[in-house]
Design a protein around this nucleic acid. Structure first.
Length: 585
RNA sequence: GAGGGCGUAGCUCAGCCCGGUAGAGCAGCGGACUUUUAAUCCGUUGGUCGAGGGUUCGAAUCCCUCCGCCCUCACCA
């Protein structure tokens, strides 16, 4: 369907006129390939104080044969602020590493560049080449010699102080949110860094990253309602996966000892601050491990990720001062800095306060490297050895969550007894209690009633600021978990709760094909008609178990929720780049 | 699914209680300015008040329906 041409808004018309003006000066309004660009943060850190001072002295009384040694930079960024002083324009550029001020002077820029500068609008993406200097007020500035277009912006950007605050617009137009609100950019950079760290953590421990089907003939491995779709070629119904579990276990049967997958699951359920219909899950399985192996793995991983975050905070004793300058030779620098007790990791944005507080020792090494290569563009940080208990608290809303202390372990049955005042095996009292509290109980199995009570009464007694493993779930509600040898009513399953959210279940996996088949049948027997349409007996999985799956531990970590916790976002929509929204019109 | 709140200029918001033809800041437009940084100074444009209906001489404002978003609760292995 052809969209009727909309009348062009006055503000857009003015920008189109400015675009034409730029084109008339010979510029491509939508730019072209540019080599040798550096990031704004990378450019900023190349500022050379001595060269700048020498240049200033020379301006008063030029010594014979003076050579301007101020570094030249070539950068690209979006114009966030623009102050036009007539013959001198000040622009604040932004990219995803930070901001950099640029000055375009009629005297020092070429004529076309200055002409172009006069056509610029807020929001335009431009390329600037110039010398690095510091202004009277101390701002590091790229003093332009040449300017060209990256991309004309035909839309009015958000207000310059308040930014884009309307949550609906932030989610619907994330591309505006990302450049208008640096905090958003920072949160998603962090998410990326944390996922990268998680992968490395698992890789270092011998886990193999795999990809298993997202389109499945039957949606197994969890009990959620799936999204249904149709495949034309084979004229068959397919389901978007609700969990990768049954495929990852098939890989254990195949002989992979340690596997993990970080990928999307889809659940056709409600959406709220903790649920998006598609969400990222990290599932890991380890042959010859059990629930305890996996709990240790998760605890170690989450603590490491928390440390990553905490180290960015200046107040934390674990913080690593960091500075930028040369992403392409990071490894070499890593070696150099390891020898100097400094630890090289990923690329981080330069922070002024860190930069200025760097010890001389680092500066010496930096200067040395700078002599060897004129274009440093790396990020470094030092990791101080820390003795004693790790103070590692990360804010989440009103809470300060303690990731440094050992995670709490609490038995499901003990929590139940403490909160309810009677043992969970007491069926009569459980039913009476559920009825008294107005909970679902009619026609429910004893263990389902117990779980209703548990979630209502016992779960809230867990301290949300202390990550807690709840262990020993009833076997009846854990169909893929091995029952405890000493007490088959309980399963070797542990759910990790942080900040009141369920973050990750852990299991000693059920690998007896007969017991598994019986549990499937039992589960299917209790289904209503609607559920029966998408929940079926997975024959092939049982067949796989009959080939022999080694004993194993497994876990599934909700990545989005973990990101919420570590980046202090109260809703999953702030942890996901493009959360699902109802379409407008 | 239930309850509550919100929707006014490109953006951030006032006006709504108590009805009288629409306001501010930023941005935009014209002008001045070569060290500004929320630049400043002078002048100025801009709105189907989410959509539809009702009450009224008259509705951004009161009432109803619908749409979108947010919050709380419910549902959710």
């Amino acid at each position: 369907m052809e969209t009727a041409p909309q009348p062009i808004h006055e503000l857009e018309a003015q920008r189109r006129a400015n675009r034409d003006a730029a084109a008339a000066l010979g510029f491509l309004p939508y730019g072209e390939r540019v080599d040798g660009l550096m990031t704004l943060a990378g450019a900023r850190c190349r500022y050379d104080e001595a060269a700048d001072r020498a240049h200033q002295e020379a301006a008063k009384a030029p010594p014979p044969g003076f050579v301007d040694a101020r570094p030249t930079v070539k950068v690209a960024g979006r114009v966030m602020l623009l102050r036009d002083n007539g013959k001198l324009l000040w622009l604040n550029l932004r990219d995803d590493t930070g901001d950099l001020q640029t000055a375009i002077s009629q005297k020092d820029a070429d004529e076309a560049s200055f002409g172009l500068a006069k056509t610029l609008d807020l929001g335009d993406v431009i390329v600037v080449e110039g010398r690095l200097m510091r202004t009277r007020t101390g701002e590091i500035t790229a003093w332009a010699s040449r300017v060209s277009m990256g991309a004309k912006c035909l839309e009015q950007p958000p207000e310059k102080h308040a930014g884009l605050t309307d949550p609906e617009l932030r989610y619907r137009r994330r591309y505006v949110d990302l450049h208008a609100n640096p905090e958003t950019m920072r949160a998603f950079h962090r998410r990326s860094a944390l996922v990268r760290r998680a992968r490395r953590w698992l890789d270092e421990r011998g886990y193999l990253e795999v990809e298993t089907p997202m389109l499945q003939v039957q949606a197994g491995g969890a009990a959620a309602r799936p999204f249904k779709t149709h495949m034309n070629a084979l004229d068959m119904t397919l389901y978007m996966r609700i969990a990768p579990e049954l495929y990852l276990k098939r890989l254990l049967v195949g002989g992979m000892r340690r596997v993990y997958e970080i990928n999307r699951n889809f659940r056709n359920e409600g959406l709220d601050r903790n649920h998006n219909p598609e969400f990222t899950m990290l599932e890991a399985y380890e042959a010859f491990g059990d629930v305890h192996t996996m709990m240790a793995l998760t605890e170690g991983l989450i603590r490491e990720l928390a440390r990553e975050i905490a180290e960015e905070e200046e107040q934390n004793p674990l913080r690593r001062p960091r500075f930028t300058g040369g992403d392409h030779f990071g490894k070499t620098l890593g070696e150099v800095f390891d020898n100097h007790r400094y630890y090289f990791d990923h690329i981080y944005t330069l922070q002024d306060q860190f930069f200025q507080s760097l010890p001389d020792e680092i500066w010496r090494v930096l200067r040395h490297l700078k002599d060897k290569n004129d274009a440093p563009n790396f990020v470094l940080m030092n990791r101080q050895e820390h003795k004693g208990p790790i103070p590692l608290k990360i804010p989440f809303g009103d809470l300060a969550i303690d990731y440094g202390s050992p995670f709490v372990r609490a038995e499901y049955g003990d929590l139940f007894q403490r909160a309810l005042g009677f043992p969970m095996t007491d069926a009569a009292r459980a039913r009476a209690e559920a009825k008294a509290r107005g909970l679902k109980h009619e026609g429910l199995d004893h263990w389902l009633i117990v779980n209703e009570l548990f979630e209502e009464v016992a779960e809230p007694t867990v301290d949300p600021s202390r990550p807690t493993f709840i262990t020993g779930y009833p076997s009846a509600i854990s169909p893929l978990t091995r029952p405890r040898p000493g007490d088959p009513t309980l399963a070797d399953r542990a759910d990790l709760f942080i900040g009141g959210m369920e973050i990750a279940p852990h299991y000693t996996e059920l690998n007896d094909p007969d017991v598994q088949a019986a549990k499937f049948r039992e589960q299917l027997a209790g289904l209503d008609e609607e559920e029966n349409t998408f929940r079926t007996f997975d024959e092939d999985f049982i067949l796989a178990l009959k080939v022999g799956m080694p004993p194993a531990g497994g876990m599934g970590l909700g990545v989005d929720r973990l990101m919420m916790l570590l980046t202090n976002q109260r809703t999953i929509r702030d942890a996901v780049l493009f959360p699902l929204m109802r379409p407008v019109e």
